[in-house]
Amino acid sequence: MHISDGVLPTSLILGCYAGSMVLAGWSARRISNDELPKVAVLTASFFIASLVHVPLGPTSVHLLIPGLVGALLGPAAFLAIALGLLLQSLLFQFGGLTALGANALMMGIPALCCGFFFRHLRGTTRQRHILAGALAGGLGTVGSALLLALLLVSAGDDFLGVAKLALVAHLPVILIEATVSAFVVSFLYTVKPELLRQQPFIPPQKLNV
């Protein structure tokens, strides 16, 4: 769930923009300049992944995938998420332009944390990978939900009820997100394990240029 325009006070908007710019700059500096176009193209695939709906009883939920992006991209995840959110707000109006900084922090910080956990917990076996993937997927959603609630409450104590409701609405998503992430990681472990090493930007055969 993204925060729309008009919820956060101006000071919080500007603060979140400043914070996410610092993190995006840090994220961009962690990868070399030549790799930025590759992150952009991969971001497009994460964008499509976030459109996938999983049925849940009479309704359906769409995936947030901050944990998965973190697990796959590592430090570059923040940049990819900020870019994906910008495009979501430009194309669909999911989240607003003025709330972009806040939304980037809300999804990007959990992604960076999950990337860190995944890197250290994945081990070498398939089971460990799957476990780390599920943890990243679940924790990514938990982190986003908590940050969303925190942002809403810091916008004013009148928003407390909405914050609680948003937290409850995320509960089923956490479970689905963890399971889907586990399956994605399991699939990638079999099919293309180099994608799970968080350095997908080094081509298998170094291009001679």
């Binding site: 193209v41 991969l42 497009a44 695939s45 499509i48 992944a49 996938v52 999983v54 995936l63 998965l68 796959l72 399971t179 889907v180 992430s181 586990a182 399956f183 994605v184 399991s186 699939f187 990638l188 099919v191 293309k192 994608l195 997908p200």
Partner: peptide, 13 residues
């Protein structure tokens, strides 16, 4: 869905 996403990531990578 997990396999679908995995395949999407592999192809886009």
């Amino acid at each position: 869905t997990g396999n679908f996403l995995g395949m999407l990531f592999v192809r886009s990578y």
